[in-house]
Computed example of a mutant assay.
Amino acid sequence: MNEQTSPERRIVVGVDGSPSSNQALRWAIRQADLTGAAVDAIACWHPTTVYDWMLHAKDPHQDATARKTLAATVADALQDAPPVQVRQSALPGKAAEVLVERSSSADLLVVGSHGHGGLPDTRLGSTSHSCVQHAHCPVVVVRPSES
């Protein structure tokens, strides 16, 4: 008998350490528990530029900082969460571009309404706005809870 295996369900979520992205990660974990999906938590860092020229050598501090922020955010989100597989990736590039690219093989993309650098009076940050416009799968934009 030849059994077909269904492809793994994937939820991609952008994480930058902001309250909005922390809420997005928690939402993605709850959704993954309901749907049997795995979560791909992605932090992005933009390579250092000098006068619009990208440096050839990757700055190890940016990568390390992104990985540290991602690990701390995931650990915090998983404290009271259901047992869900969460894979972590810190990737170079602009967050919107990386997340849109990763959405091509995802069932769902989850982002915060605005993260680092977001203006407090805006309804949607530039990364979430770009993801909503260009993602290859459905997008959920999570606003930080009012506290």
Rank of each mutant, 00 (worst) to 15 (best):
E3Q: 13
E3T: 15
E3C: 12
Q4M: 14
T5S: 12
S6A: 13
P7G: 13
I11L: 04
V13I: 14
V13F: 03
G14R: 04
D16K: 08
S18N: 01
S20W: 00
S21G: 08
S21N: 10
S21F: 06
N22V: 14
N22H: 08
Q23Y: 07
Q23R: 12
Q23H: 10
A24V: 12
A24W: 06
A24L: 05
A24D: 02
L25Q: 01
R26M: 08
W27Y: 10
A28L: 04
R30G: 08
Q31C: 10
Q31V: 14
A32R: 04
D33L: 09
T35P: 01
T35C: 02
G36W: 04
A37P: 12
V39C: 05
D40E: 12
D40Y: 00
I42V: 15
A43S: 10
C44A: 13
C44M: 09
W45S: 05
W45H: 11
P47K: 02
P47T: 12
T49M: 07
Y51F: 11
M54G: 14
L55C: 11
L55I: 15
H56C: 08
A57E: 13
A57R: 06
A57Y: 02
K58F: 00
K58S: 05
P60L: 04
H61Y: 13
H61F: 11
Q62P: 03
Q62T: 09
R67P: 07
T69L: 10
T69S: 05
L70T: 05
L70V: 09
A71C: 03
A71T: 15
A72G: 11
A72M: 07
V74W: 03
A75W: 00
D76W: 00
A77Q: 05
L78M: 12
Q79V: 15
D80K: 10
A81M: 03
A81H: 02
P82K: 09
P82G: 13
P82H: 11
P82I: 11
P83Q: 10
V84S: 02
V84I: 05
V86Y: 01
L91D: 03
P92M: 02
K94N: 13
A95V: 12
E97G: 13
E97P: 04
V98A: 08
V98D: 01
V98M: 09
S103H: 07
S103K: 00
S104D: 12
A106D: 01
D107L: 06
L109V: 14
L109W: 13
V111M: 06
G112T: 13
S113H: 08
G115Q: 04
H116W: 08
H116P: 11
G118N: 06
P120I: 07
D121H: 08
R123M: 07
L124I: 15
L124H: 06
G125V: 08
G125C: 05
S128H: 07
S128D: 03
H129T: 15
A135V: 14
H136D: 14
H136K: 12
P138E: 11
V139H: 02
V140G: 00
V140Q: 10
V141I: 14
V142I: 15
R143Y: 01
R143W: 00
S147L: 06
